[in-house]
């Protein structure tokens, strides 16, 4: 659906995007995450031609967008909706007029505009607010209007530029649910740019991490979170685990298979070694649990424990070997 190949962009000599390669598949929700200034919004704007780039290729819907004329790119943009952190609504137009604006620009008939706008506002749950002005709405409602507006021209792709960053967590969740529904029901491919990792976990199928103007990681969200590449650790922050004297820390990866589910019970009952849970980050994604479990076991039991885990088919590693007196610190 969207293929980015060796894309470069610089602003007055400073690199903004360096050697970007990316593939967003049709029908998926793709998340791009990175610190502010990493170039993620710029990359997003390259997709619909709001920003130009210096080198490389951006192929959207089998169209190489750098080859389009100004007129052609306006036509092309009809198929790509976009929403923003600041909602970008017209303050002096009613909700209905805001949603009709794209269609007005493409000379739809009045009747068709009104009908489509009302349908979409019904879809986003604002059918009672047609004549309201944006300042009478809450942040979440404004973003719903923006989503309805972005869908008016029946796009194949929806770009979200920090769309939930100005909203509180509960509202963010409801907006993400709406986006997921739009994705499922209309088959619209969604690209989300955010600095908020929980947005990626909640909404996205696959993700990319941008660090220092480059794509550092690209993959399925579950894989990235299980593999914990350094760039991910960099973004989510570090967590310290301290091994008490005489004990080691073993790290287990949970991937929601049958084995994983019954593992802890059988581990405790059949292995019969003393252990304690030091830390666990288990996330829910598409009704599946995944994440890591850190167990502390006595040094003399490490070999036995590891053998048991491997035998049961768990992914495991000795995270912190035998601690020295006074405790050994390890940054995770």
């Amino acid at each position: 659906m969207i293929k980015v190949q060796k894309l470069y962009k610089a602003y007055s000599g400073i690199n903004v995007l360096t050697d970007i390669n990316l593939h967003v598949r049709k029908g998926e929700i793709f998340g791009i995450v990175g610190q502010s200034g990493a170039g993620k919004s710029t990359l997003l704007r390259c997709i619909n031609g709001l920003e130009t780039f210096d080198r490389g290729k951006m192929i959207v819907n089998d169209t190489d967008i750098s080859l389009l004329s100004e007129k052609e790119i306006r036509l092309f943009r009809q198929k790509i909706g976009m929403i923003f952190q600041s909602f970008a609504l017209l303050n002096r137009k009613t909700v209905l007029e805001n949603v009709m604006l794209p269609m007005e620009c493409w000379n739809y008939s009045r009747v068709k505009m009104q009908k489509r706008a009302e349908e979409l506002l019904d879809l986003v749950g604002l059918s009672g607010k047609l004549q309201s002005l944006p300042h009478e709405l809450s942040g979440g409602q404004k973003q719903r209007v923006a989503i309805a507006r972005a869908l008016t021209l029946e796009p194949d792709i929806l770009l979200c530029d920090e769309a939930t960053s100005a909203l509180d967590p509960a509202i963010t969740k409801s907006i993400l649910e709406l986006l997921a529904a739009v994705n499922r029901q209309m088959g619209i491919t969604i690209v989300i740019v955010t600095h908020d990792m929980s947005v990626i976990k909640t909404a996205c199928d696959r993700m990319a991490i941008i660090t220092g103007n480059r794509i550092a990681v690209e993959g399925a969200v579950t894989d990235v979170f299980l593999e914990e590449p350094p760039d991910l650790i960099e973004l989510v922050g570090r967590q310290e685990i301290v091994a008490p004297p005489g004990r080691s820390i073993i790290k287990l990866s949970i991937r929601d298979s049958e084995i994983n589910q019954s593992f802890l019970y059988s581990f405790a009952s059949s292995l019969r070694v003393d252990f304690s849970i030091v830390s666990a980050n288990i996330e829910q994604l598409n009704q599946k649990s995944f994440g890591h479990l850190y167990l502390s076991v006595a040094d003399e039991n490490v070999a036995q424990t590891m053998a048991y885990c491997e035998q049961s088919g768990m992914e495991c590693s000795v995270f912190l070997p035998a601690a020295r007196a006074g405790g050994d610190r390890h940054v995770l």
């Binding site: 036509l75 943009r77 909706g81 923003f84 970008a88 604006l101 794209p102 923006a146």
Partner: peptide, 10 residues
Amino acid sequence: DVILAARSFG
């Protein structure tokens, strides 16, 4: 952003 939005729908 309002101008960007307008450009985004062509």
